[in-house]
Design a protein around this nucleic acid. Structure first.
Length: 373
DNA sequence: TGGTATT
């Protein structure tokens, strides 16, 4: 593929710059952002190979779970292919995403940790206005305003937000350099920008993949809640921000709120206006003792120590079992935990059902007896 | 406090 004349370089002073080296990687190396979660490295490579010969392709994955982080590097042999890839593939819609293709910045420590979390923004603030506020402090790589809306799109050129977009008053700004981000924090955190009514908070964003939802956090948070009764809504103490209240699986039926933890174990009592316990035969137990809990949506690499860690804080755990494929020795996506005490099992189910582990939302319930239900 | 912008 050396037939277009571009490969014959003329050096003015007889220097020996290699045509084959990596000295111009900044013009051949691309970063591809907003890839669909399910897209594999080979699929990315195939897509970009349609433009020209790819020297390397690396999809970035979570170190622990192996899940795609949604971005990739693609290095071409030739600068013109990289440029063509930007021109033809940037903005391409794949599944539910619009990919972004741009030159990768040379890697360095100074560009890491440059993402800021901003809260207290006026609800009508556009993305353009947000960038204007931060632009004095450096080169903005990306910005985002979080919305409640189902339709997250805000035209980035006009800055016009769809009226159906309900800003949460929270945004992110990624600078090119960490120092720029630090300057913005110094200048803006706690201040009331011109035209604002409230002070804004500016701080470094949580960096992704750092296990901010780690198990010890969950355990430390929930252990004091084990009281033998329904725990009810659990309020953050400030140090821990994350608890899946959705795990309570509240549903509204005919105007009445029910906790759908396990049909047959509780029913709604109109008189007491609360969930009442009903005695249940231990048909979901192993060997007639303890309460068997079904845990679904576990990652393939899940080991049994994970289940011990997850359920241990809630009380006495008799046994755990991760169901594995015999061929691959990988978890088939579910497992079982047997707990001694009913009340502790209920709270474990309440607390862990809906809990996000890695990128997966766990489904936790009492094991059902398929013969009966 | 998103969905994942530095291998």
């Amino acid at each position: 593929m050396m037939q277009n004349g571009m490969d014959i370089l003329h050096h003015q002073n007889g220097s020996t710059n290699s045509v084959h080296g990596h000295q111009n990687e900044s013009k051949t190396n691309l970063i591809v952002n907003y890839l669909p979660q399910t897209m594999t490295q080979e699929e990315v490579r195939s897509l970009f190979a349609s433009i020209g010969e790819v020297e390397s392709c690396k999809l970035i994955r979570d170190k622990v779970t192996g899940q795609s982080l949604g971005y990739s590097f693609v290095n071409y042999h030739r600068m013109e292919d990289a440029e063509k890839a930007i021109n033809t593939l940037n903005g391409l819609r794949l599944q539910n995403k619009t990919i972004k293709v741009s030159y990768a910045r040379p890697s360095s420590e100074s560009i890491k940790g440059a993402n800021l979390y901003v809260s207290g923004l006026p609800k009508n603030m556009s993305q353009i206005e947000l960038e204007s506020l931060f632009a004095p402090f450096g080169r903005i790589i990306t910005s985002r305003i979080l919305c409640d809306s189902f339709q997250p799109f805000v035209d980035p050129t006009s800055g016009v937000a769809d009226p159906s977009n309900m800003s949460k008053g929270v945004g992110f700004i990624r600078f090119d350099q960490r120092m720029e981000a630090e300057r913005a924090i110094q200048a803006l955190n706690g201040t009331i920008p011109k035209g604002f009514n409230e002070p804004i908070t500016v701080k470094f964003a949580n960096n992704p993949g750092n296990n901010s939802k780690a198990i010890p956090t969950l355990a430390a948070y929930l252990a004091p809640q084990i009281t033998g009764r329904f725990a009810g809504p659990i309020h953050p103490t400030g140090r821990f921000r994350y608890i899946p209240l959705s795990s309570l699986a509240a549903t509204t039926t005919a105007g009445k709120t029910m906790l759908a933890i396990n049909k047959g174990l509780q029913r709604y009592s109109p008189l007491a206006n609360e969930i009442v316990q009903e005695p249940v035969l231990p048909g979901n137990t192993i060997a007639g003792t303890g309460w068997c809990i079904f845990v679904y949506n576990l990652a393939p690499e899940t080991e049994e120590n994970m289940l011990w860690q997850l359920f241990g804080p809630f009380g006495a755990v008799q046994s755990v079992k991760v169901i594995k494929d015999l061929q691959t020795n990988k978890c088939k996506g579910f497992g079982f935990v047997t707990m001694t005490n009913y009340d502790e099992a209920v709270i474990a189910i309440q607390s862990l059902n809906g809990y996000t582990l890695g990128n997966r939302i766990l489904q936790v319930s009492f094991k059902t007896n398929k013969n009966k239900m």
